[in-house]
Amino acid sequence: MVTSIIRRLFQALFVILAMTVIVFIGVSVIGNPVDILINPDANQVERARVIAHYGLDEPLWKQYFIFLRGLAQGDFGDSFVYGRPALGLILERLPATLELAIAALGIAIVIGLPLGLYAGLYPSRISSRIIMTGSILGFSLPTFWVGLMLIMIFSVELGWLPTNGRGPTLEFLGGQWSFLTSDGLRHLLLPAFNLALFKTSLILRLTRAGVQEVLPQDYIKFARAKGLRERRIIAVHVLKNLMIPVVTIVGLEFGSLIAFSVVTESIFAWPGMGKLIIDSINLLDRPVIVAYLMMMVLLFVVLNFVIDTCYTILDPRVRLDSKA
C-alpha cells in the first residue's frame, strides 16, 4: 500500500511539472497579459514598471524557473488581476464548486442507480423503455440549453427558485457553504440538477448494462438454485458485482464535475472555481490558470487512488500490492 502511494505521488509530481510547462508556453502564445493588465493610457515608464513588477521582462524560461523556485516554497505566485496569492483565490472558491459537485453527484446516484437497476431487471416493460429513452435525452441535450430552460420554467414562469448566485452562506470548516442555509439550498437546487442530468443518464445506462451482464451469469442461477429470495440476489449478488464499474465512473465523474462545471457555473452565476478559471483565461491571469490546473491534476490523481482502493474492497481478486 505504501509503495503504491509513493509511486502515485511521483506520477502526480511528474504530470504536474509537465502541466506547468504546457501552461507556461500555452498562455504566452495566446497573448501578452500586459496588453490586458495595463491601462492603454499609461505612459512608457508606468508600463515598464508594471512589467518589471510581474517579472514579465525576463525571458520565458527564466520566468518558468522563478516560478518553480516559488513553487518549491509553496508559493504559486500572485494573481495578476487580484494581486493576491493564486492558491488562496482558488481555495476560496473551492467550497462553492465542491458543494455543487457533491449535490449533483448525489442526485445522479440517487436517481440513476435505482432506475438503471429497474430497467436492467425488467428490460421488456414499457416503463423501462421510457426510462431508457429519457436517458438518451439526458445525455444528448446540451447543458447550457437545459440550464436556460430550467431558469425559464422554475424561476421566470413559476417563480419557485432563484435564478443565480449562492444565496446566504454559513461558515463551516473554514469555508463558506450554501447548503447550510435553507435559502442557500434553494439556490443550489437548479444548478445541481442541471449538472446532474448528464451524470444521471450515464450512471443509469451503466447500471442497466451492468445488470444485464451479471444476470445471465451462472452464479446468479446458482444463487437461485440455493433457494435465495429474489431480494437478496439483487441486493447482494447483483449489486456488489455491479458496483465495480459504477464506482469507477462515479469517481471520475466527480473529478470532472469539480474541474469542468464551467458552463453551469456561468449560467447560474455560481461563484465557483469554473467561473474563476474562465475569467482568468480571459484576462490571461497565468498564475491562477497554472495553480488551478495543478490542483486539478492532483485531484484526479487522488480520485484515481481512492477508486483503486475501493476496488480492493469491492473485488477480492484485485490486490494493489501484488504487482509493482
Binding site: Q217, D218, Y219, F222, K226, G227, H237, N241, D315
Partner: peptide
Amino acid sequence: MRQIRGKRIAMVFQDPMMTLNPVLTIET
C-alpha cells in the same frame, strides 16, 4: 418453488469457476 429449491432439490452446475460469486466469501 423457492422453498423447495436448495432445500429439497439441490443442483450442482457444470463449471465450478462460474458457479460461485467471485466477490463474496465462501462463508457469505
